[in-house]
């Protein structure tokens, strides 16, 4: 076993342990934000492993895959982050009548109905 093989196996083993830890966080993570952050880390790890595989196998065919993953990885996080923001506003929306009557300054054109449609 050459030094090169040992280094490659070390990198693979470390990445495997990392992915398993991240997967456990995705499964157990108490909040949706935890799961979102953990899936971000998993996507990053995926990009790194795709790159590492190119180094180990000595080819460059999957560089386009890295480009696409780096470019589109943001979409999931941003979409879920927006969704989480709206879901987080839900509990206070439980007393909408109170805020509607007392908060006359927030005379938006029926914010409740508009929001509900978007949810």
């Amino acid at each position: 076993m050459t030094l090169l093989t040992v280094l490659w196996m070390l990198a693979g083993g470390l990445a495997t342990v990392a992915v398993l830890l991240v997967l456990a966080r995705i499964i157990t993570g108490p909040t949706l934000i935890d799961r979102l952050i953990a899936s971000d880390v998993m996507l990053t790890t995926l990009i790194l492993v795709v790159g590492a595989e190119m180094v180990i196998s000595g080819h460059t065919r999957t560089i386009p895959l890295m480009v696409v993953l780096a470019a589109t990885g943001i979409l999931g996080s941003v979409a879920v982050a927006r969704f989480v923001s709206r879901a987080g506003a839900e509990p206070t929306g439980a007393q909408p009548d109170e805020s509607q009557q007392t908060g006359a300054e927030t005379a938006l054109p029926s914010p409740e109905g508009g929001d509900d449609e978007r949810r």
Binding site: L7, A11, L14, A15, V17, A18, V19, V22, V41, A52
Partner: peptide, 13 residues
Amino acid sequence: LVVAALLTLAAAI
């Protein structure tokens, strides 16, 4: 590659 894998492991920890 090993250093990058260590960084990933650090993030997971």
